[in-house]
C-alpha cells in the first residue's frame, strides 16, 4: 500500500488519488522544434530515482499537489530538499 500525503487532507491510500505524472523535461540536446514537440508529446523521463510529480486527491479535496518521490523506493521526500 502506497500512502500519499495530501497537503489538504493528510495521508491517504494511493487509491484515493490520480497519478499525474512528472513534470516533463525535454533535454537541451534536442534542438529542432518538431523534435522537441515529439519529445514533449510522447517521451517520458521515466526516472529511476527522485522525481517531481503531480497527484490529484480525487476522493478528498479534489486538488492537485506536487510531491517529490523516489521511484526506486516509493519514498516521499520533503519538497524543499
Amino acid at each position: 500500500m502506497l500512502w500519499v500525503e495530501c497537503p489538504n487532507c493528510g495521508s491517504r491510500p494511493f487509491e484515493e488519488y490520480r497519478y499525474g505524472n512528472v513534470f516533463p523535461v525535454t533535454p537541451d540536446t534536442i534542438t529542432d522544434a518538431d523534435a522537441r514537440n515529439v519529445d514533449y508529446a510522447w517521451m517520458q523521463d521515466n526516472i529511476a530515482g527522485v522525481t517531481l510529480e503531480r497527484w490529484f486527491h480525487e476522493s478528498g479535496c479534489r486538488r492537485w499537489f506536487t510531491a517529490k518521490r523516489d521511484t526506486t523506493s516509493d519514498e516521499f521526500l520533503p519538497l524543499d530538499d
Binding site: N8, C9, R12, E15, E58, S59, G60
Partner: peptide, 10 residues
C-alpha cells in the same frame, strides 16, 4: 474536516 474514502465512497 476529514475527507477521503469511507467504505470506498468519497
Amino acid at each position: 474536516v476529514a475527507q477521503g474514502q469511507i467504505a470506498g465512497v468519497p
